[in-house]
Amino acid sequence: MVVDARGCSCPQPVLMTKKALAKESKLEVLVDNNTAMNNVSRFAQSQGCTVNVKPAEADGEYTIEISK
């Protein structure tokens, strides 16, 4: 499942990740700034998930792979 959290203000990216994680065990979260990348990664780690951050093609964007 892909969660597109690009352009969303705090704390939407984390909230969207939290909601999606309640239903799915594998996620790809798209974010477009460092703050959201750090917040989402930190949240996923706190939930015991494996987190892998990949810079996306566009400047400043990231794809965060999360698996439970």
Binding site: P11, V14, L15, K18, N39, R42, F43, S46
Partner: peptide
């Protein structure tokens, strides 16, 4: 907010 919503106390 984050302490309450996500137990993120940083």
């Amino acid at each position: 907010r984050d302490s309450i919503m996500f137990r993120d106390f940083s």
